[in-house]
C-alpha cells in the first residue's frame, strides 16, 4: 500500500508541474495584454507600462515561470487581474463552498443511486428494473444548465418551495457572518450552534445539489445494476448457488460487496465532472463558489485565477482517484 501511495503522490507532483508549465505558458502565449487587463478599463499607456514592471512581465517567460513557482511553493498564487485580490485567499474562501455542495451531491447520488441499482438488479426484468433504467438514462441525459433552469422554474417560480439564489437568505446576511472555522458553511454553523443559519444554508443548497447530483446518480444506479448482474453470473457465485446457498443471501452477502468496486471507480470522475459542472450550476443559482468565480474569470481572461483553478481541479481529480483506489483495494482484495 505504501509504495502505491508514494507512486501516486509522485505522479500528482509530476502532473501539477506539467500543468503549471502548460497553463502558465498558455497564459503568456495567448493574445491578451496581462498588464493592460490588470490596470483595467480605460488604461493609459504609461499605466500599462508601470503595471508591466510591477508584475514582472518585462522578464523572459522562463524567469517569470520560476518566480511563479517560487511563490507557489510559499502558497502565493499571484494577484487576480480583475479584483486585484490575492488568488490564494479567494481560493481558500470559495473552494470549500463548492466542495461542500459537490460532496453532498456525491453522497446523495450514492445514497439513492446504489439502492436503486441494487433493487433493479434484484428485481431484474420487472417494471422496477425498467423504471430504474429509465430514470438512470434520463439523469445522465439532462444537460446540467437545462436541469438547473428547470428546477428554478418549477421549485421557485411555480411551487415556491426553495429559494432562488445565493448561499443564505438575504435577511440572514444583515447579521454578522459566522466565524470561519472549517469554512464549510454547514459545519461552521453547527460549531457555532446556530441551527437557524444551518437550516437556511441547507435550504439554499438543495437545488444546486440536486442539479449536481443528477449525473452521478444516474451513473451509480446504472453501473451498480449492471455490475451486480455481472457478478451474479460469476463462477464463484454459480458454485455457491449450486451448493444450495439461498439467492437473497448470495445477492447481499457476496454479490453486493464485489459489485461495489466498479461503482467506486467512477466516483473520482464524478467528482471532477461535478466540479466542472459547478461552473454552470453556481452561475445559475448565484452561488459564490469556485465555479462562479471561474466563470467570471473566464470571461475577463483573469489568467492568475484560471491557472490556480486548473491546478486545483487537476489536484482534486488525482487525489480523489487515489483515495478511491485505496478504497477499492479495501473493498475488493482481487485488485493488486
Amino acid at each position: 500500500m505504501l509504495p502505491f501511495l508514494i507512486r501516486r503522490l509522485a505522479g500528482l507532483v509530476f502532473l501539477l508541474l506539467i500543468l503549471t508549465m502548460l497553463v502558465f505558458g498558455l497564459s503568456r502565449a495567448l493574445p491578451g495584454d496581462v498588464a493592460a487587463m490588470y490596470v483595467g478599463l480605460k488604461a493609459k499607456p504609461e499605466q500599462i507600462q508601470k503595471a508591466r514592471l510591477e508584475l514582472g512581465l518585462d522578464k523572459p517567460v522562463h524567469v517569470q515561470y520560476l518566480r511563479y513557482m517560487g511563490r507557489l511553493l510559499k502558497g502565493d498564487l499571484g494577484i487576480s487581474l480583475r479584483t486585484h485580490r490575492p488568488v490564494a485567499r479567494d481560493l481558500k474562501e470559495k473552494l470549500p463552498l463548492s466542495l461542500e455542495i459537490v460532496l453532498l451531491a456525491l453522497l446523495i447520488s450514492i445514497a439513492l443511486g446504489l439502492p436503486m441499482g441494487v433493487v433493479a438488479a434484484f428485481k431484474r426484468d420487472t417494471w422496477i428494473d425498467s423504471a430504474v433504467n429509465m430514470i438512470g438514462s434520463a439523469a445522465v441525459s439532462l444537460p446540467i444548465f437545462f436541469l438547473a433552469l428547470l428546477l428554478q422554474l418549477v421549485f421557485f417560480n411555480w411551487l415556491g418551495w426553495f429559494p432562488l439564489q445565493g448561499r443564505i437568505s438575504t435577511m440572514m446576511e444583515f447579521r454578522d457572518p459566522l466565524p470561519a472555522v472549517t469554512r464549510f458553511g454547514l459545519i461552521d454553523a453547527l460549531l457555532a450552534g446556530d441551527l437557524e443559519y444551518m437550516a437556511d444554508m441547507a435550504w439554499h443548497m438543495f437545488l444546486p445539489v440536486v442539479s449536481l447530483a443528477s449525473i452521478p446518480l444516474g451513473l451509480v444506479a446504472r453501473l451498480s445494476r449492471s455490475s451486480l448482474l455481472e457478478v451474479m453470473q460469476a463462477d464463484y457465485i454459480m458454485a455457491a448457488r449450486a451448493s444450495g446457498v439461498g439467492e437473497t443471501v448470495l445477492f447481499f452477502r457476496y454479490g453486493l460487496r464485489n459489485a461495489l468496486s466498479p461503482v467506486l471507480s467512477i466516483m473520482g470522475l464524478s467528482m471532477a465532472l461535478m466540479l466542472l459542472n459547478t461552473f454552470y450550476v453556481e452561475q445559475i443559482f448565484n452561488y459564490p463558489g469556485i465555479g462562479y468565480w471561474a466563470l467570471a474569470s473566464i470571461f475577463s481572461l483573469d489568467y492568475p485565477v484560471l491557472v490556480a483553478i486548473t491546478l486545483v481541479l487537476g489536484a482534486i481529480y488525482v487525489l480523489s482517484n487515489t483515495i478511491i483506489d485505496v478504497l477499492r483495494r479495501w473493498v475488493d482484495p482481487r485488485i493488486k
Binding site: T83, H84, S169, M171, F174, L195, E196, A199, W203, F206
Partner: peptide
Amino acid sequence: VLLMATLPIPARAGQKNIVYATSADVTT
C-alpha cells in the same frame, strides 16, 4: 432542518434595510 428554514426570520426591529442586487463588482 428544512421545516425550520421556512419559519419567518425576525428582522432587526426598526431598521430600514434593503438589498441591492447588481453585477457592479469592485476592482479596487
